[in-house]
Design a protein around this nucleic acid. Sequence first.
RNA 1: GGCGGCGUAGCCAAGUGGUAAGGCAGCGGAUUGCAAAUCCGUCAUUCAGCGGUUCGAAUCCGCUCGCCGCCUCCA
Length: 476
Amino acid sequence: MKLRNSMGGRLEEFEPLDPARVGIYVCGPTVYGDSHLGHAKSYVSFDVLVRYLRHTGFAVRYVQNITDVGHLSENSEFGEDKIQRQAALERVEPLELAERYTRSYFEDMDALGNLRPDISPRASGHIPEQIELVRTLLSRGHAYRSGGCVYYSVRSFPGYGKLSGRRLDELLAGARVEVQENKRDPLDFALWKKADGGHILKWRSPWGWGYPGWHLECSAMAMRYLGETIDVHGGGLENIFPHHECEVAQSEAATGKPFARFWLHNNMVTVDGRKMGKSLGNFVALKDIFARFDPAVVRLYILRSHYRSPLDFTEEGLRSARSAFERLSELRTRLARTAGEGAGSDAAADLAASLSRSFRERMDDDLDTPGALAAVFDFVRAANSMLDGGSGAGDASMLRDLIEDLCGGVLGIARRQDRDVLETGQEKLVEALSLARSALRGSRLFREADEIRRIVAEAGYSVRDLPDGTSLIKKS
RNA sequence: GGCGGCGUAGCCAAGUGGUAAGGCAGCGGAUUGCAAAUCCGUCAUUCAGCGGUUCGAAUCCGCUCGCCGCCUCCA
């Protein structure tokens, strides 16, 4: 499998350090608000990577942090902690707020079908590890104390800039580097900050009461759970600089070893061509989208574009994804109905082999999910044709197993509910209406039957008259 | 100002030297009591524009235009 490595920018054959095991670290959310589509794109992308690696036989340890401290609202000495600021607004404890939005985050990710990370470490729960890392950097001469804070000395690490392609003099030329009195160099960044009066989230350290700098947690937790050199480090494109650049500098200066072998970055979600972000006030909360679209549709929408391409959010795009999702779901339902005992034909085996091959080819090419989906939809047409032609139970079983494996197991776009079983009270009523309608049709009372179909459709169920009976399907 | 990316049909989107995948929408047909679903056919002589390299370019090079991201917290 080839992946585009942000470190160097080239497509490289992926091989983990340990041939059988892969360690992945992905920058998780700062939990001070509900998740939006941008989170969905990032975490769906990495979820598919993890699923695919497991599918191809690797044992994967997937670590994704939860940032609940140290993320300041501005890059200044006196910036407010985002968690603390929002906690004050909602009148709760900072960690209570973090817990609230951590749950909200997992609710949304579960709905999208993302597998839970194997470890979801909290920054606040890893203060000793972070302090230890600062001590190491101090002892190695890469950090210095000043005004109760500890800063990383960027010029002590020659590799600074190698990930983001920046050069120190160019950074200085930029107008927005703020000179701060405690720093020896404007480019230096805080490892540990002194807590002044208003800070609630603070810990005792060798340098007094304080709290960790934002970049520190990822280095400390990644190395704690995945070792000093990790196979894959992922995150959003906007984190390449400064966040990931600083992680590289901290970690490699501390260990003398490469920090991450593969850096993967997903592109942004835009709205009307503009980046979506909390600070821009144009973000689309997942809970709002889920009220109108099945989360599986949102997932398919995301996977229809490449992880490294920007995704422009549109209502029309979501509707298009919903149609495509329905088409796929139709086939899956059809296969499940037909599947049973019996030997499969050569034609079905050929079709399955063809999809397996092209799916793998596309996924092996830097996780080309749009290409993989194209292969899936080629398969959808061919499989429908076979079923139209009267393929038997054995063929259907074979095709079903494959599509469940790829779409369910790898892409995660399978809807979980069994759509032939209607369970809620409303659904029972709809089912009863449908039976009554069948009787009307039997009596050739089509006008009445059509009226029932129209009403049931308004309630969110599509009614179809098939040669062997009537099908009821809940719309997405 | 510096660094990086993008521009493929009405919309979305693969394809990085060999003659334009796929989805949605549309149109014609088969099927159907009518629909829906499904299938068949159709839908870019052309890949922002202009030059160049090549037997051959959407793919490589140069220039132009347009858009976006990062350089400050952000997935």
